[in-house]
Structure formats: structure tokens, C-alpha cells
Write a protein that binds this DNA or RNA. Structure first.
Lengths: 156, 156
DNA sequence: TATTGTTATACTCTATAACTATA
DNA sequence: TATAGTTATAGAGTATAACAATA
């Protein structure tokens, strides 16, 4: 053991002492930036990105969401949902089903191809998550998910 | 008390049962989307956004970061830092100081005007954070920040 | 040869408003 | 009058590659 055994710091650790490092909005933004970049890399071979994956995931849930519900739950604008569903539908992964009870609405449901694609994509995003949250223990991950849920879905 | 006293659900709560709602990447993306939108609204009157605010914050830290250090710590590309520093410098909030020890590098430091602006901006982002994390208790917030830190800064 | 800051380019994401068809 | 989906557009964010100055 020598005196110059450097700790595995990244060079900018001194900024952890800055006020910014204590702000949730910054930490969340950084975690998202890194996490989604990693997830996008993993999903790229499947022709998906995190946003299209989230739409596909709900389309596979069996809950038959309307586009409006997708927009609300994903915190995306309805016009963005149009583009995402368009791409997935053009690719044969989901289909728009007219809502029998309201002809304005369209229910989004995955095709068999979409379900198969989702199974593969889900495995990849879980892998990416394991990497992203590699610094957390199993119990910490559980606690983190609970707190994240409260932060992502305030009030109701 | 009546039988139709509806709980304060938002209409898409049934999707909380979907697999997606258990994925950290989705929850982080949603929390960031909502949180940064709120923070951007608050910062707008000051001519700042969350990204320029984060640069200004580190410029005010007294740690005299180089642009490269800003890029690494903020998880932004060096070319993005150029644009952010350009705008702040043009506005008189920060200045580029030649690094005496390396003429390639430029140290980013806030001007007095920038420091005053940061003080106001910091109050606004803290307000926004209180709103965003309103569903968390004080102890939960502390725990959340610790876990967020591990998620935002893996390994080192 | 490698690194810092810079410029340029293309693509993705976000925000807004207007339109249509239904309710 | 209000809502679901759609279209269009502009601005913000992200990713890459190349370049000059310096190490």
C-alpha cells in the first residue's frame, strides 16, 4: 500500500460540495440524462427509443389506453402521442382501435409483433436500469422506486 | 358522508399497475419532465432555464470550473457548454477567465450581477422543488436526495 | 499525439396554436 | 361548449464530427 493510491474519483468530485449537488432537480436531470442515453443505446437495435418504448409498454399492458390517457400518464403532449403511435403503427407494433363508447377516442393496443418486440425491449431496459442503478443495493433500489413514484405522481 | 365520495385520483391511476410504472427510467423521466417544466416556468422571468441556471450556479460556487469540468459534471457536451456560457457571458452574468496554468482552458466565474441573479434564481428553484416534491415528507426528501445522488453519480 | 474550446450540422424533444369530428 | 385526435411550426435539447490553439 502506497501513499499515492488515488481514490477512484472522476475529477469533478469537488463540485459535489456545490449547492447545485443538493438540488433534486439537478440530480434528477443528470440521472435521467445518463439513464435515458444508456437505455436509448440498448433499444436502438430494436428501432425503439425510451419514449416509443413507454408507449409500446402501455399498449402491451392489456389496459387499452386511449391516446389521451397515454399523454397524461406519460406526461407528454397529445400531439407527441400521435407521432409516437404513428411510427409504431406504421411499423406494425400497435394498432388504433375505435372506442365503441366514444367515437372520438382511439384505443391503443399492441399487435402480436408488438408484444414480442416489447418482451425483448423490456429485458434490455431492465438491463440498462441495473447498470444505471448499479450503485444502489437491492433494498435501496426498492426504497428509491417508492420515493420516485411519489415524486413522479404527486397528489393523486 | 356519501357513498360516491370519489378519491382524488387523476383518471389514469389504473396504469400504475402496469409494468412501466415500476421502471426507474420511466419514473425518473416523468419526474424530470414535470420538475424541469415547473422550474423553467419559475426561472423564465429571470431569463434563465434549468440548464443555464446550473451553469450559473457552478460559476457562483467559487470553485472556478473550466468548461470541460462543467460539461462533465452537468453531463452535457462541451459544445453545449459553449452556447450556455456564451449566452450568460453576453448577458454579463459570467466571464471567461484564461487559466494561467493551461492556456487552452477557460475558468468560468460569475460577475457580481451573476451572483445577484443566482441568489434570486436559487430561491425560485428551491420553491419549485418544494412543489415538485410536495408529496414527500422531510425525512423522505433527505433519503430521496441521498439515493438520487447515488443514481446521478455512479461508481466514483 | 492528446486535449480544450469552438463551429457546424442534423436529429430528437418540447411547447403552442389551430383545425376536424365528435360529445 | 367542451373534448379527442390531428397537423403545423418554432424553439430547446442532444449527438457527432471536424477544426485551431495548446499541451
Amino acid at each position: 500500500m502506497t501513499t499515492n493510491a488515488a481514490p477512484p474519483t472522476s475529477g469533478t468530485d469537488r463540485f459535489l460540495a456545490a449547492e447545485l449537488a443538493g438540488e433534486a432537480s439537478f440530480l434528477i436531470a443528470r440521472a435521467r440524462s445518463r439513464g435515458s442515453a444508456l437505455a436509448n443505446d440498448r433499444l436502438a437495435p430494436l428501432g425503439l427509443r425510451v419514449r416509443s418504448y413507454s408507449v409500446l409498454s402501455l399498449a402491451c399492458s392489456g389496459l387499452r389506453p386511449t391516446q389521451r390517457e397515454l399523454a397524461e400518464f406519460l406526461s407528454l403532449d397529445p400531439s407527441q402521442i400521435v407521432a409516437l403511435v404513428d411510427a409504431l403503427e406504421k411499423d406494425g407494433q400497435v394498432q388504433r382501435i375505435p372506442d365503441p363508447s366514444d367515437r372520438r377516442s382511439k384505443l391503443i393496443e399492441a399487435t402480436p409483433s408488438g408484444a414480442a418486440l416489447y418482451a425483448r425491449a423490456r429485458a434490455l431496459t431492465c438491463e440498462a436500469e441495473d447498470v444505471s442503478l448499479g450503485g444502489l443495493s437491492a433494498t435501496e433500489k426498492t426504497e428509491f422506486l417508492e420515493l420516485l413514484n411519489k415524486a413522479a405522481f404527486p397528489i393523486g
